[in-house]
């Protein structure tokens, strides 16, 4: 299977930033794919399949991050992750106003 590398730059746009729930949703989505997923913020590069690693970015609303996806299903993985972040982590929205995550 061919190794392809796909990149994208994104801005975190949900008001609460990449706190635990969106970090979990991101890692969960990334884990569905065989490709390696890396998130880069400034000079920090972390494993996008690890909730703990994503939290170390402390990425608030407005933070720019780069995604680098490498592997056989890289195009699909990148597209799914970009959609998740761009949509502001839709499945956390209902809960956020009520409980805060």
């Amino acid at each position: 299977m061919s190794e392809t590398k796909q990149c994208a730059t994104l801005v975190i746009n949900n008001p609460q930033g990449l706190h635990m729930r969106p970090a979990y949703l991101f890692a969960e989505m990334a884990a569905k794919y065989a490709s390696r997923v890396e998130v880069i913020k400034d000079d920090i590069r972390i494993d996008g399949k690890s909730v703990l690693s994503i939290l170390t970015l402390g990425a608030a609303q407005g933070t720019e991050v780069a995604l680098e996806v490498t592997g056989p299903d890289a195009p699909d993985a990148l597209s799914a992750l970009v959609q998740l972040v761009s949509a502001g982590f839709p499945s956390e929205k209902d809960s956020e106003s009520e409980v805060g995550t």
Binding site: G17, L55, T56, G58, A60
Partner: peptide
Amino acid sequence: PGDHLRALENISK
């Protein structure tokens, strides 16, 4: 939310 993120950032690091 920024304070919450910074606390989580430290804990996770």
